[in-house]
Simulated scan of single mutants.
Amino acid sequence: MKCLLLVDIQNGFCSGGNLAVPHGEDVVPVANRLIAEGRYDLVVASQDWHPADHGSFASQHPGKKPFEMGTLSGKPQMLWPDHCVQGTRDAQFHPGLNFAGIDHIQRKGENREVDSYSAFRDNDHAALTGLSGYLARARVGTLDICGLATDYCVKATALDAKAMMPGVDVRFIADASRGIDPAGVQAAIAEMAAAGVRIMTSRDVLAER
């Protein structure tokens, strides 16, 4: 069983969004091409789904500004602009994404007391989203991961996939992903590769038989 996991391809992380990743919307046609080719038995999309008072928002920390470091539940936390608030346009999937081709949506980031980069579990690793169980029940053997942003949610998702799903071939599709900081993207790719995540391109995937 082969699965494509699309990470947070939402309005909030694309141009005009509250936490836009540079050229984030460029991943949409690549993701659509991967879906359309029919190479995957299962397509899953994660969705940041924050309450309006989420503790990772700078607005919840008097005197703090977005992209400053703060604390959340006693731990260091990058503070973000308010983004992907439940029920808002910012939280919706990008309108160009082939939504009809998605089989399962995994929401994350609903607990205001902890951030949740990974589609598999909160950042403190205390609470699981249930995605690992869902993929295990589907008997997924190959998991291709892409989306937004490479240096945060995509990296965390790929590393957790390796840690939580032994025996699964986890692969990162580089050209179907975009990151916030170029140096951070390179560091994230190196970290994923060191953990055993295979680095691929969409051309590599589509060339497979």
Rank of each mutant, 00 (worst) to 15 (best):
M1E: 12
Q10E: 13
F13W: 11
F13L: 14
C14F: 10
G16K: 10
G16C: 11
A20M: 09
V21R: 05
P22G: 11
P22R: 09
H23W: 10
H23T: 12
G24S: 06
V27R: 04
V27K: 07
V30R: 02
L34V: 08
A36V: 07
V44H: 06
V44T: 07
G63A: 09
E68P: 00
K75Q: 14
L79G: 02
W80P: 01
W80A: 00
C84T: 04
A91H: 00
Q92S: 14
F93I: 07
N98S: 13
F99Y: 13
F99I: 14
G109T: 08
G109A: 08
V114G: 03
V114F: 08
F120C: 11
R121F: 10
D124L: 13
L128I: 02
T129H: 02
G133E: 13
G133F: 05
G133I: 05
V140H: 05
T142P: 00
D144P: 01
G147F: 01
L148M: 08
D151I: 04
Y152H: 15
K155C: 07
T157M: 03
A158G: 04
D160E: 08
D160P: 06
A161Y: 01
K162T: 09
P166Q: 10
P166W: 07
F172Y: 15
I173A: 02
G179E: 09
D181R: 13
G184N: 06
A190D: 14
M192G: 02
A193K: 15
A194L: 13
A195G: 09
I199E: 04
T201R: 09
S202H: 07
E208A: 14
